[in-house]
Design a protein around this nucleic acid. Sequence first.
RNA 1: GGCCGGAUGGCGGAGUGGCCACGCUCAGGAUUGCAAAUCCUGCUACGCCGGUUCGAUUCCGGCUCCGGCCUCCA
Length: 462
Amino acid sequence: MSLILYNTLTRRKEAFTPADPARVTMYVCGPTVYSYAHIGNARPAVVFDVLFRMLKMRFAGVVYARNITDIDDKINAAAEKDGVPIATVTDKFAAIYRADMSALGVLTPTLEPHATAHVAQIIDMIARLIKKGHAYAAEGHVLFSVPSFAGYGQLSGRNMDDMIAGARVEVAPYKKDPADFVLWKPSTPDLPGWDSPWGRGRPGWHIECSSMIETHLGKTIDIHGGGHDLIFPHHENEMAQGMCAHDGATYARVWMHNGFLTMDKEKMSKSLGNIALIHDLLKDTPGEALRWALLSAHYRQPLDWSDDLVGQSKRTLDRLYRALELVKEQIGKAPEATQPSEKFLAALDDDINTPIAMAELSAIANAIYQTAEADHTELASLGGALKASGELLGVLQMSPDAWFAGTLAVAVNKALVDKLVADRTVARKNRDFAQADKIRQELDKFGVIVEDGPNGPTWRVK
RNA sequence: GGCCGGAUGGCGGAGUGGCCACGCUCAGGAUUGCAAAUCCUGCUACGCCGGUUCGAUUCCGGCUCCGGCCUCCA
């Protein structure tokens, strides 16, 4: 089986073959760090994390870069509001972003380049674009000349006439063509800026990514990913810059875009106010449950976020963890990850079909429940496959004990729960069921459920 | 206006020209001191209208509705 990926550029599923299997390159547009990230921001991070895991399993070397945009007017605004340097804002929110991603089981990318560390390279790339006749300086700005690149519009499937007809293109006196976009813009003395041949200023958004890709990954990368809303103008512009700087070399061999997370059927966005911050969600939901919810729909489909979705995800994982717990009880130790099941791999290989992959996880769990308790070989085998499959998806990585105790309110003393459960066991031995039920009701107040199994009682958080 | 997606059972969500997705929820049964967990059964799904076909949720045509991009945006 080979890996099949949908390519936005060709609008088809294609077999994926990297240019160099020893160095597969992937770049995904990361966050602009000026405030807390919402769960919609997490979708690309989680989706491409799954792809990163798949690539690592398959190829000898994978270089995955996810940038941190730390030059941006919104950052400037936030810093000015608090009267602090922009680094204070960006350092804070970059750290929070990393913590959020970690909680969602997202692996650290190979590289996390910061725009501020690449200003020299950005200036160099802009200078080369000017030299090649694809950009021009005007009134302290440098603009990319869209008409100079015949291939403009191929990614987003739009042509210049349509865009101008849309009449939403910013008109500025220094633009030679209304579609030209900014590579460098001047900074007033109160704004952050860097010296350049065109005066003190700061880079435009699109050039940052092109430059960081060139610096770390090369002229042509295998996979470029990001949210669907980045296709135009961001990725279209990135591609134009990269191809023009490199005499037409392919910029990205495969373009991938995830669909949106919606809330009440509308795109989650700060301006609409329909957002759920990862930071807040993690307060009462395990990261794996959020991750499961994010992967519950195919990555190119829209996904409507709701409390109900999170609840369903949590309960589904409960059942999978219970299967792992059962294996552990029967064979006497936690199963170790072996190999993901073939069906599971086949599902992910087909353009990262996570819903089918997740169905396979359930199938393995069902097989565990239906396997004879004495068949330790089979149980260990199934448990190992479940664990290994979960690993590729980035779930089922906790011990069942930790999972079931995970959301226990901090205020509740774990030792107290254990004591109450022990007291209840004594009551049951004495056949004092009234007392036993009373204790159970007590535990229920903490959200704790006691289950009487063949090997004594266990408890978990609802 | 231009470009691009989507419409599946109580909910989430795959997929397919004819047969079971899968998960969650709910109901009934088995089991249990009672529960929970587990097992069994059920809740007669595929936006509308035509067409092709022995047969369409799946292909073709038309329609309606919803969403996204065209401006910072994952």
